Simulated assay, not measured.
Amino acid sequence: MNYLRKTKHIAIMSTLTLLMAGTALATPQDDADAFLKDKNWAEATRAFEGLLETDTENAANYFNLGRARHHMEDYAGARTAYEKSIEHNFQRLQTARYHLARALVSLNQQEKSLEQLEHIAGSGRFSYHTLQGTSEFETFKENPKFIKVIAILTPCNTPEYRQFSFWLGEWDVKSAGATTSSATNSLTSVHGGCVMMEQYVAGTYSGMSINFYDATTKKWHQTWSDNAGGSLYLEGHLKANGSMVLSDENFETSKITGTINKITWTLNPDKSVQQLWESSTDNGKTWATAFDGIYTKQALDK
């Protein structure tokens, strides 16, 4: 029995020691972070203010102090803290500018708020949906500066993304020189204008492609697949004459097959579109026509 009591006593003391050790390991930083996590804004404010008395260059603590003050509706204090976090190169810089812009609106400093939003737009790295959904920015909805900020931050909103737009629409397709159409093709803008989707139907044959501009490579890309198991991977540019020219010259498929495919789309004066598909088996020295088609807008789409 004495042995059991002794063992139980040791276990209890060990548990208490561990608990005390855990408490001893807690730091003022841990306490401040915990207050913030628990949304205890008053205690978080005091805790971060205390930390910043000794560590005056901690950008993250300035930001968190700003958040706590903001929730306490101390907008002037929040502004000062956010500005300090920016001054000390807070890692999430645009987030700090966003909250600073919110605080500035609450201080009736709309122009300074818009300046922060313009800084955010200049970075190109922030969600325009977030700005549009922020209650403080409701007053900016008709403001030209705010509209420009949203336009800049909206993905796929530069002229390059519209270079292939002349191919959008519902089309009847016929071979060059033919009098009747042999297929239909539907080109739609999807995913916020970032992708053009093609749906091609010719009798029992059908296929589709996705077409998009890659801002990193500054090239247009097309990936095609059909119900015959065929596929194409093309890339290229809009030429100076206004034609879009894509080929698979730089893809592994052309090396495997020994054939380079090149497709040229040209907008005609009558708003029809010519699609010229050519192939080469001598590394581009000579070209054979695989398909020469004319796209004419369907009556309902004119």
Rank of each mutant, 00 (worst) to 15 (best):
residue 148 K to P: 00
residue 111 E to W: 02
residue 58 N to P: 00
residue 96 A to L: 07
residue 46 R to K: 13
residue 205 Y to A: 04
residue 160 E to C: 07
residue 286 T to S: 15
residue 143 N to C: 05
residue 236 G to H: 07
residue 107 L to A: 10
residue 194 C to P: 03
residue 180 T to Y: 08
residue 231 S to P: 00
residue 140 F to M: 03
residue 88 H to T: 08
residue 43 E to C: 01
residue 238 L to R: 14
residue 107 L to S: 12
residue 120 I to R: 12
residue 202 A to M: 11
residue 101 A to H: 05
residue 159 P to W: 13
residue 18 L to W: 11
residue 203 G to R: 06
residue 166 F to L: 06
residue 178 A to L: 05
residue 77 G to I: 10
residue 165 S to K: 05
residue 169 G to S: 00
residue 62 Y to E: 09
residue 68 A to W: 03
residue 41 W to I: 01
residue 210 I to R: 11
residue 141 K to M: 08
residue 154 T to K: 15
residue 186 S to H: 15
residue 232 L to W: 12
residue 299 A to Q: 14
residue 69 R to W: 02
residue 300 L to M: 10
residue 253 T to P: 00
residue 147 I to A: 10
residue 50 G to E: 03
residue 121 A to W: 07
residue 167 W to D: 00
residue 158 T to C: 02
residue 240 A to R: 11
residue 239 K to N: 09
residue 130 T to I: 07
residue 217 T to G: 02
residue 142 E to K: 09
residue 159 P to A: 00
residue 55 D to Y: 01
residue 177 G to Y: 04
residue 136 E to Q: 15
residue 54 T to P: 01
residue 141 K to P: 01
residue 280 S to M: 05
residue 60 A to H: 02
residue 98 Y to R: 03
residue 78 A to H: 11
residue 6 K to P: 00
residue 242 G to P: 12
residue 292 D to T: 02
residue 53 E to H: 11
residue 88 H to D: 06
residue 126 F to Q: 02
residue 299 A to G: 04
